[in-house]
């Protein structure tokens, strides 16, 4: 048998109250090993309080070539931002 360990993506919560953030990837035989390896590779200096791992093949990504069409609906809607509205300076607490 000559099978490479699958690739896993690692997400780390650095502090309680923050999101898990992508840290990088690594190879491991299974999820338990991926978490242990992630601890050794990505948290040697207490960078995390929680680790997520997911096999890379399960990640689906948008295509950068489609970015134009994909984000187009948000392009011309400046009125979604508070700065769009022209209000008198005297108006307070808003």
């Amino acid at each position: 048998m000559n099978k490479e360990w699958p690739l896993w993506e690692v997400f780390i919560r650095s502090r309680q109250g923050l999101d898990h953030k992508h840290a990088g990837s690594l190879h491991a035989a299974d999820a338990a090993m991926a978490i242990e390896n992630a601890r050794d590779v990505y948290t040697r200096r207490m960078e995390g309080v929680s680790i997520w791992v997911v096999e890379s093949k399960h990640i689906h990504a948008s295509n950068p070539d489609d970015a134009g069409a994909l984000y187009d609906p948000a392009n011309d809607k400046a009125y979604r931002h508070p700065t769009f509205y022209d209000l008198p300076d005297e108006l307070k607490h808003m």
Binding site: M1, N2, K3, W5, A29, D30, M33
Partner: peptide, 8 residues
């Protein structure tokens, strides 16, 4: 490596 994969 092989044993870990077989076990998984």
């Amino acid at each position: 490596r092989e044993a870990a994969m077989a076990y998984a």
